[in-house]
Design a protein around this nucleic acid. Structure first.
Length: 415
RNA sequence: GUGAGUGUCGCCUAGUGGUCUAAGGCGCCAGGUUGUGGCCCUGGAGAACGAGGGUUCAAAUCCCUCCACUCACCCCA
């Protein structure tokens, strides 16, 4: 028997209420902040991702679904959302629009990883990007949107972690200081951290091993090495976040896994500790557009994992609105009644009333059982007598009351 | 990529060498008088016990290999 490929899953009807609810909240909040939807292709030129995400990241090194198509092009299923949006911004000359350009997406993301709770090979992210300005107010707005989004979902006990990792001017100095500091601790570091020291020193800071964390805690802080502009930017951002009453925590160990981040980085996490705790994260990427061939264009964005949001909604027992279903079930007995039922179902649907018509030749009892288990409010019953008299029986399934009415009054009764 | 755990009908679970060509619950289907649901009752369909190999007179139950799933590490959403 075929199964869904490893790390993928079917989203069955009983799960759809959660998905639709989140999609609705995304659309609402984005509209509120002036973001417009963009849908990019599921795959792109491999280079787009290797350039933007960074050659030395786990994503590029071992997680991309890359293949050659029939023409020999190197194609990659998108492992993150930002690169495609930036590509679209450049490709369609969106710099001609008033800046910043604000775009959002809900889309599937593909990464080849070992699946576990909250981590899949195909998952969905909601994300948004504000491209074309580096004003710290914009950073604040982007963070505020993320925070208000989770608020609107009634997800509580979240924390907002914030840091600034500087720009290409000031970061090299910081990295040097960091490496110097760690040089004296090489023997105490875990094996992973030893390789991090060589390959990606920033990542040393978020190792979870107790000893490594101790070392990280007294490591040089990126914010102490910011250049004048980055320092001012970060301070202004914090001021705006206070103005907006967002309860941020400056986390000196917060770094992000993608190379394109500059200055502001932030994450939103559930307060409960655990694996895959990050609900969403984002930050500034002031050099990315230029890197991809555009003019220097500052930008900032955020993305959150839909599955993780759903996990947390369930964990916190937060109900979501149930999806609407047809209000009327039509049952029938006999062939003539069946014709009537079919016609009636069609007529009602054309007036906007949702109808499920009994299908097949089941007993009336079976048909009513079905109506019951579908949780439908009204059942219309048509039999020989009703055909003869031009009537139908309208049964209220919640009260078990029913009455016989002329068929042409049914629509009025159902309004 | 590393480590641990699990694998019996659609779902949950019983069974730990012989009475198991596998039991129960949920769900599904059908009936409980003639055209009526939800409760109850009865019956039915549905798994050769993840796959393959081995041990044994005998295996769902023991061993091996593989596969899958789950969880954790790594990393991230």
């Amino acid at each position: 028997m075929y199964r869904a490929p490893r790390g993928t899953s079917d989203i069955l009807p009983k799960e759809q209420a959660h998905w639709r609810h989140i999609e609705q909240k995304v659309a609402d909040i984005c509209q509120l902040y002036g973001y417009e939807r963009i849908d990019a292709p599921a795959f792109e030129d491999t280079q787009l991702f290797t350039r933007s995400v960074g050659e030395d990241t786990d994503i590029v090194e071992k997680q991309m679904y890359t293949f050659q198509d029939r023409s020999g092009s190197q194609i990659t299923l998108r492992p993150e959302g930002t690169a495609s949006v930036c590509r679209a911004y450049l490709e369609h000359g969106l710099h001609n629009l008033p800046q910043p350009v604000k775009l959002y997406y809900i889309t599937s993301i593909f990464r080849y990883e070992r699946p576990q709770a909250g981590r899949y090979r195909q998952h969905y992210q909601f994300g948004y990007e504000a491209i074309g300005d580096d004003d710290p107010t914009l950073d604040a707005e982007v963070i505020d949107l993320a925070w208000q989004f989770f608020e609107s979902l009634n997800l509580h006990h979240l924390s907002l972690q914030l840091n600034s990792i500087g720009c290409k001017k000031c970061r090299p100095g910081y990295l040097t200081a960091l490496k110097d500091y760690y040089a004296s601790y090489t023997h105490d570091l875990c094996s992973d951290c030893k390789t991090r020291l060589k390959r990606n020193p920033l990542r040393l800071l978020d190792c979870k091993k107790p000893l490594c964390q101790q070392i990280a805690n007294s490591a040089p802080r990126s914010i102490d090495y910011l250049c004048q502009q980055c320092d001012t930017h970060f301070n202004q951002l914090k001021k705006y976040l206070e103005l907006l009453e967002l309860p941020f925590i400056v986390n000196h160990c917060l770094v992000r896994g993608l190379d394109y981040y500059t200055r502001t980085v932030f994450e939103i996490q559930p307060e409960a500790e655990g694996a895959q705790s990050t609900l969403g994260g984002g930050g500034r990427y002031d050099d990315l557009i230029e890197e991809l061939g555009g003019k220097p264009t500052p930008a900032i964005g955020f993305a959150a994992g839909i599955e993780r949001i759903i996990i947390n909604l369930k964990k916190q027992n937060i109900p979501v609105p149930s999806l609407p279903k047809p209000r009327v079930f039509i049952a029938y007995v006999g062939n003539e009644a069946r014709d009537k039922a079919t016609k009636l179902a069609s007529t009602l649907r054309r007036t906007g009333i949702g109808v499920i018509e009994a299908i097949g030749s089941k007993s009336l009892k079976a048909q009513l059982r079905q109506a019951n288990s579908l949780g439908i409010h009204h059942t219309v019953i048509i039999g020989d007598e009703e055909v003869e008299a031009g009537t139908v029986i309208l049964r209220d399934m919640t009260t078990a009351e029913q009455k016989t009415i002329p068929i042409d009054q049914l629509e009025g009764e159902l309004q």
